[in-house]
Structures are given as C-alpha cells and as structure tokens.
C-alpha cells in the first residue's frame, strides 16, 4: 500500500510535537517512513535482496542499509525494512515466496542521540549496549520498560527506537526520564 494518493499534510503522527531530552541526550520523533514486515524462508532471501536492493542480513542482531532502505534482522525469517515508498511492490517484484505487510503506520520511531543515549535507553532496556556487545548497525527487538521496541544503533551515540504507535507516548516518557538521569550519571562504561 502506498501513500501516494493521500494528502500527507493530513497525517497525524503519534508523537507530533513531542520533544525532550537532557544535556547529554537528544530525543526526537522521527519523520514518517514506509516500513514493511518482511517474512521469507532462507532460500528466498537472495531473490528478495535483489528486488529490494540490499542484502537482507542473515546474522542475528545485524542490519543492512542501501538504496535509501534499511533492513533489520529481527528473526530467522523476519526483517523490518524501513525506507522510501514502494517496499511492498519491490518485494513483490522478486517473484519469491514471501510475506510483506505494510506496518508504516503501526510503528513510529524515536531518535535518541548524544553521549548519554545508551544510558537513557538502559533506564528501561535490559540489553548490554556497550559498543562491543551492540555495535553500530546492531538491531534487535527487545523491551523498554513495559513495552516492546525494535532498537537500531545508527551511530556510536545514536539509536533509532521503533515502537508501536500507542506505546510511543510511554516510550518517549520513559526515555525522557532516562535522559534526565543519564545527564546526572552518564554511561558508566
């Protein structure tokens, strides 16, 4: 499904107007993006990679970017692909057996950046976010407090937090508290 026919001005983003952070963490709602939940068996990965224009990652906790698209490994047959319009059609053009479901509006994203970014996320996320354990481009589904998120490290001190829209207010609020605390006691390691 594409948004081409729609008046983009009438889109209401769940975190519209949200702002927050602290001296060491910047919190920003990400702009709208197209996303698909892509599912396929191992034998069809190559064809889909071709069609989408990037190599779908096959190692756990990794992502790949290319052609304005980013594919996040979420499970052995599951990717979250984020990018410009046309993802469903691109996947379909592969001719390979797969499932591509539009989740562009299901998710929204929070961009967390700054020297305290990891500490802020660790206020609610049980993962080891040291660079050794969670390097740039690492990604996974995990928890932030009481809600599920998909976490992608976009730079040493920047993360993208994908979250279902109705949980985004909670996630933003918790990250806000985490950001505040990170300013007082930044990344311990």
């Amino acid at each position: 499904m594409v948004d081409s026919g729609a008046d983009l001005a009438s889109r209401t983003l769940p975190l519209a107007g949200a702002h927050g952070g602290s001296s060491v963490v910047l919190l920003e709602p990400a702009g709208p993006a197209e996303r698909i939940s892509l599912r396929a068996r191992a034998e069809d990965v190559a064809a889909l990679s071709n069609a989408i224009g990037l190599d779908l990652p096959v190692r756990p906790k990794t992502s790949a970017s290319g052609n304005g698209r980013t594919a996040l490994w979420l499970g052995p047959d599951e990717w979250l692909v984020i990018g410009e319009a046309g993802l469903v059609q691109a996947a379909a053009s592969s001719g390979a057996l797969h499932s591509a479901t539009d989740v562009s509006h299901r998710n929204t994203a929070i961009l967390v950046s700054g020297p305290g970014a990891a500490a802020a996320i660790n206020s609610g996320c049980p993962l080891d976010l040291s660079l050794a354990a969670f390097p740039v481009a690492a990604c996974t589904r995990t928890l932030l407090g009481k809600v599920e998120i998909v976490l992608l490290r976009t730079a040493e001190d920047a993360f993208r937090v994908e979250v279902w829209r109705s949980f985004s207010g909670y996630a933003f609020g918790l990250l806000g508290e985490g950001a505040r605390d990170a300013a007082l006691n930044p990344e311990p390691l």
Partner: peptide
C-alpha cells in the same frame, strides 16, 4: 519501582 509510576506505571494506549 523506579520509573514505573504515574504515567509510566502502565502504558496508556490511545487510538488515532
């Protein structure tokens, strides 16, 4: 409890 109080006690889900 730490952060889990008031607004952050439990997510409040709202429709669009």
């Amino acid at each position: 409890i730490a952060h889990s109080r008031a607004e952050l006690f439990d997510p409040t889900r709202k429709t669009p």
